[in-house]
């Protein structure tokens, strides 16, 4: 929702970044205020995931220019774990499997890291169990998934639900969802979207990365940006998604020319 005078959570200015010396982001500008949902759409390979990895500090991606301010401070001054504790969250396009580490241990560890950072009490096994019971219905997750290893042997949809469960537990200020809709059937898409909708408040904001318009029928964005070749080339409201769906990304190239 667009809220008048709401503070800026994320301001990206002229951001450039490269992978293995190859420039991928070529001057990204974007600003997101509290309460807003932004969507970034664009063809495969345009740099959407790269932007999400740069914002969260993946070591493979090198920032070569520009600036990013998060809640008014330099985001790049923070280590990846610090960014997370400060409220930046990425739902991975391809969630990682961690054999031998139980999902609930992992969730509790990350929850307590965030609590500690906020000066709030850490939860023991029992109290955290109660918190989980409260959060599980948000993504309609079977409690059996808590005792299994993180993402190991989960289906694509289960992995994505697990990502949203983590979002529900960590309550981020900025949630970046990278292709959370890809590989989901309609049921899973509905569950995941409902989860995200439940978690959006006037205090936080959300950056949805998607290739398809389908997700945007479930989560209604305030703004849609189109990314092409490492830049945001077009910004509009939700009707832009329908244009894109009808006319394809090639239409943009034609208008460029």
């Amino acid at each position: 929702m667009i809220v008048a005078d709401s503070p800026e959570v994320l301001v990206i200015s002229d951001l450039t970044a490269s992978v293995e010396g190859v420039p991928i982001l070529k001057g990204v500008n974007l600003s997101i205020k509290a309460g807003e949902i932004h969507a970034i759409m664009g063809p495969n390979g345009s740099g959407k995931s790269t932007l999400s990895k740069v914002l969260t500090g993946h070591p493979d991606y090198e920032v070569t220019g520009g600036a990013v301010h998060y809640l008014g401070a330099d985001l790049f001054a923070l280590e990846p774990a610090e960014r997370a504790r400060a409220g930046v969250f990425l739902a991975f396009q391809y969630p990682i499997e961690i054999p031998g580490v139980s999902n609930s241990d992992f969730l509790r560890l990350s929850y307590n890291a965030r609590q500690k950072h906020r000066g709030l009490p850490e939860l023991d096994l029992l109290d955290f169990g109660d918190l989980l019971q409260e959060k599980l219905p948000i993504v309609e997750m079977n409690p059996a998934f808590l005792s299994r290893s993180v993402n190991e042997g989960f289906s694509g949809g289960e992995k994505k639900r697990n990502e949203i469960l983590q979002m529900a537990i960590l309550e981020p200020t900025l949630a970046i969802l990278d292709e959370t809709d890809s590989g989901l059937d309609i049921d899973a898409l509905r569950i995941v979207s409902q989860g995200v909708n439940q978690l959006t408040t006037p205090e936080n904001c959300c950056l949805l990365i998607t290739h398809y318009q389908r997700l945007l029928q479930y989560i209604i964005p305030d703004y849609i940006h189109v990314m092409a070749e490492g830049k945001i080339t077009l910004t509009g409201d939700r009707t832009l998604a329908e244009d894109l769906e009808a006319r394809g990304y090639d239409w943009l190239r034609e208008t460029d020319a």
Partner: peptide, 8 residues
């Protein structure tokens, strides 16, 4: 990185 991205 997955663990770091969760604040660990």
């Amino acid at each position: 990185f997955y663990l770091l991205s969760r604040g660990i």
